[in-house]
């Protein structure tokens, strides 16, 4: 697990925000995916989608149910709610098919070749300012930093601990990789977990 790729992702996200991009892509790895989901949970990015080299089709361009058909379906479901559940395969239909109310799953074309997969991120802007402005590594590829929950308690209260500066900027977040997955520092304090610091974001 090298942190070099993460460092590249950090600078790429900063650059993409400065360039006011709406959508950008990063290489896929388990750590990247989990970290980006953490960023989405904290509200820094709007969407995380696995895709290929081309960006995934925007929601508006994808096939949708037209409003009339939607209305009809809603009426029918209101009368016969059981139609929303799959029927057993005795009546000539294959098992598991639903009569109505099928969820539309937009198929995102993910290449078979994992090397060609990319993680597509939607960036956020507010009041003409990027929401994610600064993203920096805490642990470095040559110097990992592990923090205990006590250290994290101090850091989240803006004090320095274990040579890591406190979270002094308003709304600053730090992400750590723990044995329960990639979590935000405050969440770690809440669950009394320690871990390896990855990056700080504000």
């Amino acid at each position: 697990m090298s942190l070099v790729n993460l460092a590249h992702v950090c600078s790429h996200l900063q650059n993409a925000s400065k360039a006011r991009l709406g959508l950008t892509s990063i290489p896929v790895s388990k750590m990247h995916v989990n970290l980006m989901l953490g960023l989405q949970r904290e509200g820094f990015i709007s969407s995380v989608t696995l895709g290929g080299t081309a960006p995934p089709q925007p929601f508006l361009l994808q096939e949708t149910v037209d409003p009339e058909a939607h209305e009809e379906m809603a009426q029918k479901l209101a009368e016969q709610p059981w139609a929303a559940y799959p029927v057993p395969g005795s009546l000539g239909r294959p098992a598991g098919t639903m009569l109505e109310g099928r969820e539309i799953l937009h198929d995102v074309k993910v290449p078979q070749n994992p090397a060609r997969r990319r993680l597509w991120l939607g960036l956020k802007y507010w009041n003409n300012e990027p929401v994610l402005k600064n993203m920096k590594l805490v642990s470095k590829p040559t110097r990992r930093i592990w923090l205990t929950s006590e250290d994290l308690g101090r850091i989240t209260r803006t004090r320095e601990a274990a040579y890591v500066k406190g979270l002094t900027h308003p709304g600053e977040c730090m992400f750590l990789t723990t044995d329960r997955g990639i979590l935000e520092a405050r969440e770690c304090v809440e669950r009394k977990l320690g871990g390896m610091a990855l990056c700080r974001v504000y």
Binding site: E42, G43, F44, K124, W126, N127, E129, V131, P170, G171
Partner: peptide, 10 residues
Amino acid sequence: KLPDEIARAR
């Protein structure tokens, strides 16, 4: 950057 703005942005 005010905390209220940050909260709304995120």
